[in-house]
Simulated assay, not measured.
Amino acid sequence: MKKIVVLFTVAITLMACNSKKKKEEIVKAEIDSTAVKVENVVSENVLVYEGLLPCADCEGIETILKIDVVDNKFQLSSTYKGKKPETNFIEKGNINTERGLEKDPDGTIYILNWDKPEKDQVYYGYYSKNPEKLYLLDKSKKIIKSKLNYFLELNE
């Protein structure tokens, strides 16, 4: 009888350990799932535009503009291709928006460094019918008219 009780006790202990291990695995999976959801929420709030802008003395300026639409922050990364060594600049700051781009009242203009002097501000804008194409604008907030590509494309 004692052997049966001991075996029964051992079996219950093993089942409890396995149950605890499974609960830990479930909790870990839930934590991992939550982390992925939080990461997706963060990435949904950040728009990333990329492209190769013209350059007078290099092959082009590889440009990545990240816009945090919730915190109104930006990060602009510019790499001068074909230069030895390739030069990379990263600028971070505050961003603001204006409605209307040229003849499109529903277009949007992003003002990078809006809280700094006008000479330090950079303008990008898109037409309401094509928000995937973000144009570099001149100092008067107009699209640069050129045969060269002065735009970035939304990276989804």
Rank of each mutant, 00 (worst) to 15 (best):
A35I: 09
I61S: 03
I143T: 11
V38F: 03
G100I: 05
D106C: 01
Y80D: 07
W114E: 14
L101M: 04
E39F: 00
I111V: 12
T87A: 08
Y150H: 13
N45A: 05
E44S: 13
Q121M: 03
N88E: 12
K147T: 06
K116Y: 02
K147I: 01
N96L: 00
Y135V: 00
D71K: 12
G51C: 07
E86W: 08
S78P: 03
L134N: 10
E98W: 05
L52T: 05
G125T: 01
I95M: 15
C58F: 09
N45W: 01
K129D: 15
K37P: 12
E118P: 12
Y80K: 15
L152D: 11
E132Y: 04
Y135H: 12
G93H: 02
A35T: 08
T13F: 09
E59F: 09
K129A: 15
V42D: 06
F8G: 10
L101T: 03
K81T: 08
G125C: 02
K22Y: 13
K2Q: 12
L7N: 12
G107N: 07
N45M: 00
E132S: 13
C17M: 07
K147E: 04
D115V: 00
M15V: 00
E91T: 13
Y135S: 06
D138K: 05
K129R: 05
D138A: 07
T9A: 15
K84P: 04
E24T: 00
V46W: 03
F89T: 10
D115N: 13
K119C: 05
K145S: 14
E132R: 13
T87H: 15
V42S: 07
I144C: 03
S19W: 02
K28Y: 04
N149C: 03
Q75K: 13
K133V: 04
K147W: 01
V70L: 11
G125V: 02
V46I: 09
V10R: 02
N45S: 00
K37N: 13
Y80L: 13
K119S: 11
K92Q: 13
L52E: 07
E25L: 00
K66D: 06
S19I: 02
T9Y: 12
S146F: 02
I109C: 09
K37T: 10
C58E: 11
W114V: 09
F89Y: 13
K73I: 08
E86S: 09
V10T: 05
K81Y: 07
K139L: 06
V5S: 09
L148K: 14
T63G: 06
E86D: 11
N113R: 15
K66V: 04
V48I: 09
N155E: 14
V42F: 00
D57C: 04
T13K: 01
S78H: 03
V69S: 15
S43A: 06
